[in-house]
Write a protein that binds this DNA or RNA. Structure first.
Lengths: 140, 140
DNA sequence: CGGCATCCGTGACGATACTG
DNA sequence: CAGTATCGTCACGGATGCCG
């Protein structure tokens, strides 16, 4: 396995800092890594896709437009490892595996959803801002 | 300029879809790009750093541990272009440039903060889950 | 101080093929 | 169906140097 999302190699994990040691601003804080799993390109979409339903691998793949098999697999593993996603595998043939959110995953996804909703709602503003910015540069 | 965050090259922007056309799930939706600016590794941290204060470039750089000059510059440009960050440049010598959140940027950052707070709070759970996951693989 | 341009390595990512 | 293994690319991102 030459390519892994992140094994337990967090160097600064055991530095035993103060109680608020999980501040994302420091380079080696594990919360930074988790935050990146959650907010990573595929992390966001995967969690959001699981917000309402329990889904199987390929259903998820269809839902998250553009994700490759590999990246979905990787993303799911990272999220499962962080305890945000639960993997239910039934050893039947053909294999039947379902993914769903854990309680913590649900909480996280709720906040994510709040963010996404805002961004989607305000896209007209964003697009307008982009237009202004580009014009101020392109035209002079 | 061979390396650019993203110019106006969004291919699916003008497809004139339905009102809810800003669904992040479709590959070519501009909201997906904006979401990635916001939730990108440096986007999150930059916005969060600006949550409370107006900051100058190098102050920001010190605050966001590990960011390179180049990435901070790129990130700020993307966020400014999307209308989330406002750049105040005073043409004095030495140059004095300040960055602050726009109203939309503030709204966005508030939601981001809610997410970050949750993740930081729950890091013990995450770490425990990781421990269980790793053990179930390494040992069993 | 606040940038921008250039060079360049690394690894994230996608496509494909294979397994159970 | 649900993945894992392998390989190639390319653009993300760091280091450096220059300019206003």
């Amino acid at each position: 396995m030459s390519e892994v999302v992140e094994q337990s190699a967090e160097p600064g994990t055991e530095r035993g800092g103060p109680p608020d040691a999980f501040d994302v601003f420091s380079r080696n804080c594990p919360s930074r890594a988790t935050l990146e799993h959650v907010t990573g390109r595929w992390g966001i979409l995967t969690l959001t896709a699981l917000a309402h339903d329990t889904l199987r691998f390929n259903a998820l793949r269809r839902r998250v437009d553009g994700v490759s098999e590999k990246m979905l697999s990787q993303t799911l593993q990272a999220l499962e490892r962080d305890g945000l996603v639960i993997r239910d595998a039934q050893p039947v043939n053909p294999p039947h595996v379902e993914y769903r959110l854990s309680p913590l995953g649900r909480e996280t996804t709720d906040r994510l959803l709040a963010l996404i909703t805002l961004v989607e709602d305000r896209m007209p503003d964003v697009l307008a801002a982009r237009g202004r910015y580009d014009e101020a540069r392109g035209t002079g």
